[in-house]
Amino acid sequence: MFHIYCPHCAEYREEEEFHAAGQAHIPRPLDPEACSDKEWGEYMFFRKNPRGIHHELWVHAAGCRKFFNMTRNTQTYEIKEVYKIGEQPSVVAE
């Protein structure tokens, strides 16, 4: 079970308070109508799904209800950093 630091609450909390919400940094296309079916499908469904360093979205569902980003190793499950929405990760995959 993960021990997650919520950047909004500024506290470590148990994973049970959080939900993973998938890959982070996938902006909704600003002009959806201009997207082809392929582009729209890729926005909705296609994911990096990396083995190793991954940037993902989490929400402190049973806490402050706020979303934040997490850089985590999907192999070792080490959490490298958490950062707020709108911020960029400092740890990235090679």
Binding site: Q23, F46, R47, K48, N49, P50, R51, T74
Partner: peptide, 18 residues
């Protein structure tokens, strides 16, 4: 579960999460 790793070698992504 490792499909994304092979897909990346092929230069594409898949609608998958492991």
């Amino acid at each position: 579960g490792n499909s994304a790793v092979i897909a990346k070698m092929g230069g594409f992504e898949l609608p998958l999460e492991s």
